[in-house]
Design a protein around this nucleic acid. Structure first.
Lengths: 133, 133
DNA sequence: TCTTGACCTGGAGTTGACTCCAGGTTGTAC
DNA sequence: GTACAACCTGGAGTCAACTCCAGGTCAAGA
């Protein structure tokens, strides 16, 4: 599969795919006789995995380390597991943070939903409701 | 409250706090006679809000726009609500993405938990279990 | 009085992750 | 056989969001 198709399938630009290869995140992709990249199933799996992890915000550095360990074979399984567990932990924390922010946003949006009502009340009763940040 | 204390309370560096002021995210903070920033309650609320939204990944540009609207008073309530709703929507999408990645990580970790067992099986039965990415 | 530490400013530098470019080759369609 | 699109490389440029720095002010303690 040529780079453009991979690029479209995973919504990663060709430039980025080549970049990932340059920095050693993905091992060199096979080429056809004229030197054009031809991604095989293994390459695609790697790209998909990286896409997924990048979407979740894992840094390239960590992924490079991880992919390097995969290349080194079975004796790195423990190390890989450690990396994944650590990233899992971070991700869980991250999700809690997002959830908190989501709650606050909901609360604020609700506040705005009531804002017009409150303004009427203000006028009627001559009080001032507090500033909505 | 002086900048250092604010910085510690919200885990935002003093440089970043000043930076936020420079780019117009936070309106100018009051100074004491010698020109040193003295954050009041309103300032702290703004900082807290920004901290929370930045943690969730909202871009500075959006926050600047939003904070600008807050400064302009009640006639911008609709616009503000629209911004918050849009960000809420994005955040929900983001969380789904993270959840997906979390599931995949769990799956992979489980795969690694079994990896040693599988290796024994390989030896016993002379088969090869597929590569663990 | 002198030192120390926190603060100030405007501007420059850094980081992570791309993204773009010039200059060149190749395979296919007309 | 020539135009065209898609590919290649190495290197430079961009972007968001900080982060650091030089050079200077100021208040409080030894």
């Amino acid at each position: 599969m040529k780079i453009k198709e991979v690029s479209e399938r995973y919504e990663i630009s060709s430039d980025t795919l080549r970049y990932y290869e340059r920095i050693g995140l993905i091992p060199p992709v096979n080429r056809n006789r004229s030197g054009i990249r031809d991604y095989d199933e293994t390459d695609l799996k790697r790209v998909e995995f990286i896409k997924c992890m990048r979407t979740a915000g894992l840094p390239l550095e960590t992924l490079i380390e991880y992919m390097g360990l995969v290349q080194q074979g079975d004796q790195t399984i423990e190390a890989r597991k450690r990396i994944l567990k650590e990233q899992r932990r971070r991700l869980a924390v991250r999700m809690q943070e997002l959830q908190q922010t989501l709650d606050i946003l909901d609360h604020k949006i609700e506040g705005y939903e009531n804002a017009i009502l409150n303004k009427e009340k203000e006028l009627r009763e001559g009080i001032e409701t507090k500033e909505l940040l």
